[in-house]
Design a protein around this nucleic acid. Structure first.
Lengths: 196, 196
DNA sequence: TTGACAAAAAAACATGCGTTATATATAATA
DNA sequence: TATTATATATAACGCATGTTTTTTTGTCAA
C-alpha cells in the first residue's frame, strides 16, 4: 500500500445521512458530501460507484434511525411503541420521514400489496418481539384491526410532517393512537358486523 | 395591435397541468411546456413573470380537479363523497395528489393549525353544502370524530399513492371509509369516555 | 535519495435548469 | 409598398448537477 486512504466509506455514508437529516434529499449532492467531510468529490467516486448506489445505504441508515425510535419502551405495549415511534420519527426527523415515505418511497412489488402492515415492521428481525406481536394479532383474526390502525398511524405521521401537527406532544400522539386503536378494536369485535 | 399572439395564458397553464398529471412536478419545465404547446420558451415568459408565478395557477387548477372528484355524488352522504373523492383522486391522479400534499405542500400559517379538517373542504365555497355539513358536525360536538376521520382518510390516500393500495377498487375505498367512520362514531359517542 | 504508484485535489465535461439577449418573421398602418 | 411594432424563434448566459480527466501530493520500496 502506497498511500492510506483518508476518507472511509462510513465517513461518506454518515455525511450523506447528516445532510439528508438537516436539509432533505435534494441537498444530498456529491459536492455537499465532499464539503461535509472536507475533501473533493474524488474520494466519493473511489468508494462508491454512483450516487444511486450510495442512496441504497443511506436509506438503510435512515431506516435504522426509525427503528431506534420504534424500539423505545414508551409504553408496555410493543406495537403501540412501534406506532408511536413512527409518528415521533415523523415529527423529530421530518426530512428522514419525508425521504423514506413521501418523496422517495421504494417501489414495492405488487405481490406483497396484501400485507402492507408488514412494511411497518419490515426492519425488525423475523424473531423480533415486534414482528411476533403483529403476527399474533393477525393470526387471531385481527388482521383488519391491524390494517386500519396502520392507515391511521401513517395518516397522522404524514400530517405531522406537513405542518398540521408539526409540534404535537408525545402525550397527544399517544392519545390519538390509543383512542383510534380502541375505536377500531371495539368495531372489529362487535357482533353485528362479523363479515364486513 | 400589430401581431396577434398565438399562445394564450390558458394554453400554457393547461399544458403545465397536463405535464404535471402525466410525469409529476419535476417534469414541469419551461422547455417541456414549450414543447407541449409547440412553441419556444419565449411566449411563456411573455405571459408569465416566472415559473414560481406560473405554479400558483397550476396549483389552483390541480385543486379544481380534486374538487371535481369530491363533488361526484357517489353516495347520499356529502362528507363521505368528499372523503371518497379525496382517495379516488389520490388513486387516479397520483401525480396531482403527490404534488399537492406530499412533494409541494403549501405552508399553512400556524394560526389555523387547530382546524386542519377545514383544509379538506377549503376549496368549497363558504355556503357550500360540503362546508356546512362539516360545520354542523363540529358544532354538535363531533369535532374529534371529524379530526380522526380525516387523519384516516389522508392516511389511506397517501398509502394509495405509495403503491400499497395502488389499484384499490371504489368498493374497497367505500368499505374502508364507512367502517372507519362507524368505528370513530361509535367511539366518540360512547358514554364512559366523555372527556378523553 | 529517488522512483513509482495510489490517493486526493483541481479542473473540466456534459447535461439540464430558469432566464435573458438577440435575431427573425409577420401583420397592421402610413 | 415601406415602415414599425410586436410575437416568436434561436441562441446564449449563469448556475448546479453527476461524473470524468488531469494534475498534484504523499508515502513506501528500491
Amino acid at each position: 500500500m502506497v498511500q492510506p486512504s483518508v476518507y472511509s466509506y462510513e465517513n461518506i455514508i454518515e455525511a450523506a445521512l447528516e445532510i439528508l437529516r438537516e436539509d432533505g434529499w435534494r441537498a444530498v449532492t456529491t459536492r455537499a458530501i465532499a464539503k461535509k467531510i472536507g475533501s473533493s468529490t474524488m474520494p466519493i467516486y473511489s468508494r462508491v460507484k454512483s450516487v444511486d448506489d450510495l442512496e441504497k445505504d443511506v436509506r438503510i441508515k435512515a431506516r435504522e434511525v426509525l427503528k431506534e425510535f420504534q424500539r423505545r419502551p414508551v409504553t408496555p405495549d410493543t406495537l403501540l411503541n412501534v406506532a408511536f415511534g413512527y409518528v415521533a420519527f415523523a415529527r423529530d426527523e421530518t426530512n428522514l420521514f419525508r425521504y423514506l415515505y413521501l418523496e422517495r418511497p421504494e417501489k414495492l412489488s405488487s405481490e406483497d400489496s396484501s400485507g402492507m402492515s408488514e412494511t411497518f415492521v419490515s426492519d425488525f428481525g423475523d424473531d423480533s418481539e415486534e414482528k411476533k406481536a403483529l403476527e399474533t394479532l393477525q393470526r387471531t383474526g385481527h388482521d383488519e384491526l391491524v390494517q386500519y390502525t396502520w392507515i391511521f398511524v401513517h395518516g397522522l405521521a404524514t400530517l405531522v410532517t406537513s405542518g398540521t401537527y408539526a409540534s404535537i406532544s408525545d402525550e397527544s400522539i399517544l392519545r390519538f393512537l390509543t383512542n383510534a386503536g380502541q375505536a377500531f378494536h371495539a368495531w372489529s369485535t362487535k357482533d353485528d358486523s362479523k363479515d364486513v
